[in-house]
């Protein structure tokens, strides 16, 4: 067999390997072997050229090596391997975008308070009065009274099975003051809803609210044989900072 230099040896090995994408990796590995052997030979006193030819010759028949490596580097196996990485990257991105991100943002948003931006005169913490109705938990969280005479009452609601969608809970409450007057029949209220990270926050807005004479509010929900009741003691109010 004629003497081969390093480059020709590697070319001949690779000429037998059908999977071209593997050529670089194989060449690097074989080249490293040749390099090691050359260094040893040079330490024994060979010059660089002699060491290269001897090191290459010691590697064996490049055609035989190439055939062996070709058996190992099956094209379909390598394709599958490469495709599997592409798929893994795609699935990781998809998992983050569709599962981790919504889940994380919900956890983050769970305790973010929803409050009015208006100037608040007094505020009230309802100490999270909680009631459960079917698979939904309803929280009365507090209230703010603003200088424009509006009372905001804050609610929160979430499903027991977390992360499950469902129909929105509606604030279909009758609201009574301490004298039994139904505020729905007098000033009425509007509702606003904001879904923060999957938790539903509701705000009841009472305009022209008579904060001087109303001391207590009772909220009664009674539909389809479901009943829940919350009270808000306005005497517990605290001046806003």
């Amino acid at each position: 067999m004629p003497s081969l230099n390093r480059r020709s040896f590697l070319d001949q090995v690779c000429s037998q390997i059908k999977w071209k994408a593997a050529h670089r990796e194989i060449c690097a590995e074989l080249d490293a072997h040749i390099e090691d052997r050359m260094e040893r030979l040079e330490r024994l006193g060979r010059d660089k050229e002699e060491a290269e030819f001897e090191a290459v010759a010691a590697m064996g028949d490049p055609i035989q090596i190439g055939k062996e490596l070709n058996r190992y580097h099956k094209p379909y196996l390598s394709w599958l391997f490469h495709c599997s990485w592409v798929l893994i990257i795609f699935l990781i991105v998809f998992f983050i975008a569709t599962v981790l991100w919504p889940w994380g943002s919900r956890l983050y948003a769970q305790n973010q308070p929803v409050r009015t931006n208006e100037k608040v005169i007094w505020t009230l913490d309802a100490e999270e009065q909680t009631q459960q109705i079917d698979n939904r938990i309803v929280y009365l969280t507090g209230a703010d009274f603003t200088e424009s005479g509006i009372l905001y009452v804050y609610w929160k609601s979430e499903l027991l099975a977390p992360y499950q969608s469902g129909w929105s809970f509606a604030l279909n409450f009758d609201v009574y003051d301490q004298n039994g007057n139904n505020l729905l029949e007098s000033i009425g209220y509007q509702t606003q809803m904001a879904a923060v990270g999957g938790i539903e926050h509701y705000v009841m807005v009472f305009r022209d609210f008579d904060a001087e004479s109303i001391e207590k509010l009772t909220f009664i929900y009674d539909q389809y044989h479901r009943h829940m009741e919350f009270t808000l003691d306005l005497m517990q109010k605290e001046a806003a900072e």
Binding site: F95, T98, L100, Y163, Q164, S165
Partner: peptide
């Protein structure tokens, strides 16, 4: 499996 389970849990 994680995506399927996550999708089911998240989207009801």
């Amino acid at each position: 499996i994680g995506i399927y389970a996550g999708q089911i849990a998240l989207s009801g």
